[in-house]
Write a protein that binds this DNA or RNA. Sequence first.
DNA 1: TGTATATATGTTAATATATTCATATAAGGA
DNA 2: TCCTTATATGAATATATTAACATATATACA
Lengths: 107, 107
Amino acid sequence: MEEFGNENGLTQDLDSETIFIVSQTFKALGDPTRIRILNLLFKKECSVNEIADTLDIRQSTVSHQLRFLKNLRLVKYRREGTTLYYSHDDAHVMLILQQMIDHACHS
Amino acid sequence: MEEFGNENGLTQDLDSETIFIVSQTFKALGDPTRIRILNLLFKKECSVNEIADTLDIRQSTVSHQLRFLKNLRLVKYRREGTTLYYSHDDAHVMLILQQMIDHACHS
DNA sequence: TGTATATATGTTAATATATTCATATAAGGA
DNA sequence: TCCTTATATGAATATATTAACATATATACA
């Protein structure tokens, strides 16, 4: 045991609330569109239309997905006039995303 | 930049194949049943029926989900008579799972 | 107040997913 | 070979998800 260390992690039984949060968060990362959005927001803060234009996704789709990510506190925004600038809001999850990307690139 | 380092990770544009692999892998982790199975397999190698009994999930459901995880090379098995013993097969993904569990426990 | 722009929301349709039941396969032993 | 046990598979159903369209809301400004 302890192959990966233990900080109340896999070596312990999981309560249903933890399982729910973990699966919800992974589900958020389990969609190509959301990965592209988060990858963009990793590089820089963006308005909704910037995201839509850059990634060639419809504005309403971007807005729906941003709401999804916002509910999980993975992104946040600030307002400037009528424009909302979104940025990532969970460094740990972004680190996990990067690890998985590295993992995919190396295998 | 470089807040999280860079090993061809988030600071670079992603090709569609990488996005696909990453999203597929996260999708595998984005389901409560699969998280419970992987969490169990982290602790020890298990037969299909052991998994089903321990987690109170039907045998066919476990088998379907194991096939899913097997296709992504997240689990493997060895045969002993009629019994198949499954175990995890991707230490890096297991590490990522544990990180997310820790993250959920601490927030 | 009216108009333009940026974003959010409601609804719908297509597709994907998860689980269940029933059954098939595969291995071992009598 | 027949029977038992362990696992896999196919089909069906219920549910979830995604993206699109149309429209609503909100802010700024003339």
